[in-house]
Nucleic acid binder design. Structure first.
Lengths: 326, 326
DNA sequence: TCCCAATGTGTGCACGTGCACACACCCCTT
DNA sequence: AAGGGGTGTGTGCACGTGCACACATTGGGA
């Protein structure tokens, strides 16, 4: 900038004013400065700018998923594009950080602490998460996509698990299923507990606790084992609400092993509309998450904090996608 | 840092030395400094650090793809993870930048110019690309994944299109196909020209230029139209090498419309092992790109430039994946 | 004529860090 | 006793920018 000022025959201050459009600069000086910038090949040094302004115009997008999920889950891509759109609109730069190992978590944490970003969107963080710890400690404006427990200081964008589960189960009932069971997961977390609550809502007095089999994990393996147990408890079951697509995929496998066909003998529904849903045979009826809108909402939560406000968490409605499994 | 020094009763210089492990610091001073850091809650300001060191320890990963490709293409995820692994190994932070519109391109360009990163990996950039222009102009250490034309200053990681095309075509011939045609694309680019060259290599004297139908684009639509034309020219065609999976998918559709079955009447092979390959019916035989290794190689190209060397571009071998379409 | 506001410009300081240099001390060798 | 090298510490400057302030010039109104 000093060189530009010298070439243009003005002072650094005038160049700074011309660049930032602040204060008074004569047309003549502005023209000379622009010529000098082109001549010298000047590009503004953001490290210095950030230092004095305490603002980087960058927002982090931290993805914390095991490999295969990151590659396959269509929701993450949708969230990313939604966040990017809003962040770009606000003239900030989205910076995606992939956490793929413990080393990564440590490095990303120190990156966030280091003041490279003004805020962060955290996707699928765990409750005990090094990155979330760092964000909370340095009070970085942030938002979760999803709803980890025990992080009241950080707002989140969630979905209405209970309503979605209610819709799904009601439909299962309305299509003639008489004995409907649930393969529940993660009842110690909001998402798991709410999905069970919605299931119970839909069945009302016909709810039978005996037909709920729970597992701590939202996994394929959990689906196999809980479905096997459900068949043992109720061989005449004809409808199953699985707490996630992965659970549903495992359940379908267990049903096939037991000689039942889907959807003729047993209707199965999942949750998430993840990559599992289309890979199942038959394709899964499931709850579609409004990924792009979740991304946009999370971005807004961060931007509002940047403006000094303290926004409330957001819960979004979902769509049910009816395919062939129920 | 000044506060830490005051709390520990030492000077700023000593704190700096203790933090960076450079020079001599007594055990006693180091202990007092660590206590002071914990007490004050000090985190190092990287904006200031970057300013004076001219180094950010961050490397950009610029993805320049239309929405659906970014979401679906499994190659991009593999490249990303490969790059991240090498970059992390070298104690740098990978920063993913998504270019999703012209505005994004402008913003990402100014981000790169702004000195936020020490280098960049550019994925699927075009020849006339604002981001590549910026990289070249400010001489940012960078590497392409893929091989855009007219960018001699920036090394790339490519695959041996010619050898892969040769292998694919040879196999098509060896499985009994007699009249083999090619649906060529993008002959004005290296990738397109090399795939045609490999096709010609494999057929040798039996090569018949009449059976090559070309289109400028690697698209599904191009596949439909070129396959239709090929059927007109040679109704007895029984083998087709499509220049990409998307082209192959279009070709399969055109064959189905014409009443031919795949692979019984006509064997079809594609290129890229993209999301198209498994979505086709039947699943496509195609060339699998070593995505993770490409990502690793690109990262190494950038890191070597950071060490002051000027590395050569890399061409990697590919695997052919035989599925059911040929 | 004098003053004041609007316009335009230059200067010094601050941001938080790394590094070169100067300096102090101790112990060992000559 | 003098000198020199290893160890430990403090100080000043530089990095490149934004901003507050001081100052200069001009024109119009009292």
């Amino acid at each position: 900038m000093h060189d530009v000022a010298a070439h243009a025959g003005v002072s650094r201050g005038t160049v700074s004013r011309a660049l930032n459009g602040t204060g008074y600069v004569s047309a003549e000086a502005r023209a000379r400065i622009e010529a000098a910038i082109a001549e010298v090949g000047y590009v503004r040094n953001n490290a210095a700018r950030n230092l004095v302004m305490r603002k980087t115009w960058a927002i982090g997008f931290v993805v914390h998923e095991p490999h295969q999920l990151f590659l396959e889950d269509p929701n993450i891509g949708g969230i990313l594009l939604g966040t990017n759109a809003v962040v770009a609109e606000a003239d900030h730069q989205l910076v995606v950080l992939v956490v793929d190992s413990d080393d990564d978590a440590a490095r990303v944490s120190s990156y966030l602490r280091g003041g490279f970003v003004d805020g962060a969107v955290l996707v699928s963080a765990r409750s005990h998460d090094q990155v979330a710890d760092a964000v909370e400690e340095i009070r970085l404006p942030a938002a979760f996509v999803g709803h980890p427990e025990g992080r009241p200081a950080i707002p989140y964008v969630g979905i209405d698990n209970r309503a979605a589960a209610r819709t799904l189960t009601t439909r299962l009932r309305d299509t003639g299923r008489r004995r409907i069971g649930m393969l529940a997961s993660a009842l110690d977390r909001d998402s798991g507990a709410d999905r069970l609550a919605g299931f119970r809502d839909a069945l009302g007095p016909r709810f039978d606790e005996h037909l709920v089999v729970a597992d701590p994990l939202y996994s394929y393996h959990a689906g196999v084992s809980t479905m096997t147990e459900l068949l043992r408890r109720a061989p005449d079951v004809d409808g199953v609400f699985a707490a996630s697509d992965a659970v549903a995929a495992g359940a379908i496998e267990a049903l096939r092993s037991a000689g039942r066909t889907v959807p003729d003998d047993v209707g199965v529904v999942g949750f998430d509309d993840s990559a599992w849903a289309l890979r199942c045979n038959p394709p899964l009826s499931t709850v579609h998450q409004p990924a792009a809108e979740m991304g946009r909402a999370a971005a807004r939560l961060v931007l509002e904090q940047l403006e000094g406000r303290t926004p409330e968490s957001v819960t979004l409605p979902t769509d049910v996608v009816w395919r062939d499994s129920a």
